[in-house]
Nucleic acid binder design. Structure first.
Lengths: 192, 192
DNA sequence: CGTCACCTTCCTAACGGTCGTTAGTTAACA
DNA sequence: TGTTAACTAACGACCGTTAGGAAGGTGACG
């Protein structure tokens, strides 16, 4: 029970301060235990960090799959637009996506390899999901301008990341300004 | 002389390891002096960091202006596309843009206010530059779909950031993959 | 021209504090 | 009885920072 709370707390601290900036002392204090007690659950800071990372990636991977299944009855446009709302809701509930974005962009140098090996499959999965979504929907809707679904998925990812990092950094108002600006243009470029 | 080298080196370290991850010890060693000698030039780590930041923002601001002036004779499409190449070249020459992107997204918590106060005007300037560019070019080219130039500029910024952070994190190959994927779609959405 | 004071820039030594980590112990529980 | 999860105490390493002094250059003044 404490182990789970410990993981959640650590994840929040890592998301907020980064690997180097997060302190075991403060994490323990937040949980309500002493610093050395962490070592009853994890082998050290690296272990705690990587476990938090695996946990965040796993959780978000299933959440992601759930979202794309739940929008199966919606139009392609609604599915893709709704993903932004989903991200926003998900991000306000917990810090997992912020954590993932942060360490994806700026991993601790000494754990760069391990981070990359965990992160890359995550984004690959994401792109595969999107590619499949685009292909399948287009079979019925016949709406896309190009049939290069992989490129479309990658472009969509680029736009979402540019928008979402804006939320992580500048808050919801700046995020919505960007989304409002970029979405009509992107969608117009995507469809016939 | 050493002061300038010190600043450049510090900037590189901050870009690579973040504020908390960068060590005065290692910075000094890279420069070829001892750690306390830093205090002959700067009041401390915060001062060094903020000075590096002001320097990077100032330099990049003028470089940016120079670029947009130098492309005055090119078409809008070439200007906007060329900006990506300019960014790439600029980034391989020094770490200033990487540094700026990093601290823009994840500033040290204790200096959040100061960082925001410096960064925001920078991005505002950037957006204003772009808005003006779009408006002026469209007056002669009559090519854009919408005359909401501010939104177009913001959308463009979103796409560039999404692409450029990819370069900072995943290298030039991933960057070019993204650019190739996103540019045709974005441009198609932008023009009539 | 010489010299004296001053400032800059570097140094060594060391400070107090925080870091992550380990050893050893205790209480609770299966 | 053995295991788990917490504790206290303390370790060595590194952190940013300060004190104090040495070397070198600069400029003023007799």
């Amino acid at each position: 029970m404490k182990a789970s709370l410990l993981l959640q707390t650590a994840l929040r601290h890592f998301a907020q301060h980064g690997y180097e900036g997060a302190s075991l002392q403060e994490i323990a204090q937040d949980v309500g235990i002493k610093k050395p007690s962490i070592y009853a659950h994890y082998r050290g800071k690296d272990d705690l960090f990587l476990t938090a990372m695996r946990y965040a990636l796993d959780t978000q991977k299933t959440h992601l799959a759930t979202y794309f299944i739940s929008t199966r009855h919606l139009s392609l446009e609604q599915s893709l637009k709704g993903f932004f709302d989903w991200f926003l809701e998900e991000s306000t509930q917990n810090d997992q996506l912020k954590f993932i974005l942060r360490i994806a962009y700026f991993p601790p140098v000494k754990l760069e390899r391990e981070v990359t090996d965990l992160i890359n499959p995550f984004f690959d999965t994401m792109q595969r999901h999107l590619t499949r979504l685009l292909r399948e929907r287009n079979r019925t809707e016949q709406i896309l301008y190009s049939d290069d679904y992989a490129s479309a998925a990658l472009a969509y990812l680029t736009v979402t990341e540019g928008t979402m990092t804006e939320f992580v950094f500048n808050g919801v108002a700046a995020y919505e300004r960007r989304f409002t600006a970029v979405w009509p243009i992107f969608w117009r470029g995507l469809v016939r």
